[in-house]
Design a protein around this nucleic acid. Structure first.
Ligand SMILES: [Mn+2]
Ligand SMILES: [Mn+2]
Ligand SMILES: [Zn+2]
Ligand SMILES: [Zn+2]
Lengths: 143, 143
DNA sequence: TCTTATATAGGAATTACTCTTATTTAAGAA
DNA sequence: TTCTTAAATAAGAGTAATTCCTATATAAGA
């Protein structure tokens, strides 16, 4: 989560992508903003330091980052897509009312699910990932 | 899934909703179309028998049906929301490439998850539902 | 340094969805 | 059955979110 400038560049390189200031800024923004920002939030954040960036560039780079597994999409009931720079396996706790999304890491759960579906064997489907969306309401509104 | 006209009306009534031709047609369309149609697909389908229906009405009614638990939203990596008239607990198998979504019913899995989270107890979050999105690729392109 | 495939800027275009207001209607009351 | 009225719909303008196009710029390998 707390990647320095060099680590961000390295991630891009490792993915076989050209390192550009735009890609750097966008990946950094998704990391830094946390809480699963929308494209629009990314744009607002980036323009503070990088005023000229084009809207289309942000969308295109986000797609590229998703395709190259540096970022993932997080879907909610609302219209706008949200993005997540945490690529370690984790799930999402989501409150539709407040649009708040919290990460949920649970190794035991992941192992349980993996074991379950190994046994189950969905014929004619190759599983690439299993994600849980846990819907409900947060009791407090802290954080 | 194979609801007749009367059953559709009954569902609306049971939810405490006024029965209107538009609501009837929209709920029927989501049932009949299956495969998690977009609002646009619902509009196209309905206009064949019900040419005058307004776009805004379809979106509004879909919202109403979701709020009253007669339909649920299904989100994918693409921009457009999709809808599902199957309200029994089930999960989704999703291929991002083809945008195909298959329903996945699994009582054992549901019980396992429920038991797991009962024990786990996410403090400060009231769970309303847990949905799995199983991402990957279908081997065949049948169906 | 040169080359070139790739990426970005700029902005128009499109899609998906939302909102507003006048009109209509479902369904309970009389 | 007719009346009443809160709620629903039509129509279409408006907005948000995303995509697309093309000229220009740039990263990075040769
Ligand atoms: Mn979603
Ligand atoms: Mn949209
Ligand atoms: Zn996350
Ligand atoms: Zn379904």
């Amino acid at each position: 989560m707390k990647l320095n400038s060099e680590q961000i560049n390295q991630k891009l390189k490792d993915a076989g992508l050209k390192v550009t200031p735009q890609r750097h800024a966008i990946l950094e923004a998704v990391c830094r903003l946390g809480n699963h920002p929308t494209a629009d939030m990314v744009i607002d954040y980036i323009r503070r330091t990088h005023p000229g960036i084009a809207t289309g560039t942000v969308y295109k780079v986000l797609d590229t980052l998703v395709d190259n597994h540096l970022v993932r999409r997080v879907k909610t009931d609302k219209d706008a897509m949200r993005y997540d720079a945490i690529m370690e396996s984790h799930h999402h706790i989501y409150c539709a009312e407040t649009e708040r999304i919290e990460d949920y890491f649970d190794k035991d759960l992941d192992e349980m699910l993996q074991a379950y579906f190994q046994k189950k064997n969905l014929h004619n489907f190759k599983i690439e990932g299993i994600f849980l969306q846990i819907n409900g309401n947060f009791n407090d509104n802290s954080k």
